[in-house]
Simulated scan of single mutants.
Amino acid sequence: MSPELLLPLCTFAAISSITPGPNNTMMLASGLNYGFVRSLPHLFGITCGFSFMIFATGLGLHVVFEQVPVLQIVLKYGGALYLLWLAWKLAHAAPMSAEQAALSRPMGFWGAAAFQWINPKAWVMSLTALTTYLPQGFGVGDAALLAGVFGVIGTLCVGCWAMFGVAMRRVLQDPRSVRIFNIVMALALVATLYPLLA
């Protein structure tokens, strides 16, 4: 990858990672409900899972989707159904007491990493980055650099959403406010499906 492409790549990684999407919406809710430290496995699952997805796709997994196009349809609608299920769970989640929050668990590393493979926004970001920023005839090192850039920048950007959720804890003190927040976040999660289904 040429040095002059590195700055535009970092800019694209930052903009695409900080804008609302399924990962960021879930991190915001996780920060609110569980705090920053308990949300870290979820955060690292997102960034490591997405980085691995970019790397694997760059090394040739995209050829599988070209050869078997039905897999794209399965991932597209399977991901949409999973997002709707997550939104339903979030909308119906009762506000947790401190004791309940201590006993319940946020999404873990492996669940968050696996989620990237059915996350529509992750696929769009991954394929756009691969086709835009990797040179013709790129090598393993180029794919690794691309994945690494998204790993570092994504961790910072998605982490901001978790910290924003933590900051919201000071504002959302009563159960009714938390319930409204969860419903709004569920609707935001559903709204992330619009580009996929439009």
Rank of each mutant, 00 (worst) to 15 (best):
P69N: 05
V70A: 14
V70C: 09
L71C: 11
L71Q: 03
L71N: 06
Q72P: 02
Q72D: 12
V74Q: 03
V74D: 03
L75T: 02
K76H: 05
G78K: 03
G78S: 06
G79C: 02
G79L: 04
G79T: 00
A80F: 01
Y82Q: 02
Y82V: 00
L83T: 04
L84M: 11
A87I: 08
W88A: 15
L90E: 00
A91R: 08
A91E: 05
H92V: 09
A93Y: 01
P95H: 02
S97F: 00
S97T: 15
S97R: 00
Q100R: 10
A101R: 03
A102T: 05
A102R: 08
L103W: 08
S104Y: 00
R105Y: 10
R105L: 10
P106E: 04
P106T: 09
G108E: 07
G108P: 06
G108A: 13
G108K: 07
F109E: 05
W110Y: 11
W110D: 06
G111L: 08
A112P: 04
A112S: 14
A112C: 12
A113Y: 02
A113W: 00
A113S: 13
A113M: 12
A114L: 15
F115C: 09
Q116N: 09
W117D: 09
I118H: 09
N119K: 11
N119H: 11
P120V: 08
P120M: 10
K121H: 10
K121I: 11
W123A: 07
W123V: 07
W123Y: 10
M125C: 11
S126N: 14
S126V: 10
T128H: 11
T128Y: 11
L130C: 12
T131Q: 13
T131I: 08
T132V: 14
T132R: 12
Y133M: 08
Y133C: 08
L134C: 12
P135R: 14
Q136P: 14
Q136E: 15
G137M: 13
F138E: 15
F138A: 15
G139Y: 07
G139L: 07
G141I: 10
A143D: 00
A144K: 12
A144M: 14
A144I: 12
L145G: 05
L145N: 07
G148L: 06
G148Q: 04
G148T: 04
V149C: 09
V149L: 05
F150C: 03
F150E: 03
G151A: 12
I153G: 05
G154C: 04
T155I: 13
T155A: 15
T155Q: 01
L156N: 02
L156I: 15
L156G: 08
C157A: 14
V158D: 02
G159D: 00
G159M: 01
G159Y: 00
C160G: 13
C160E: 01
A162P: 03
G165K: 05
A167S: 15
M168H: 12
R169L: 04
R170A: 10
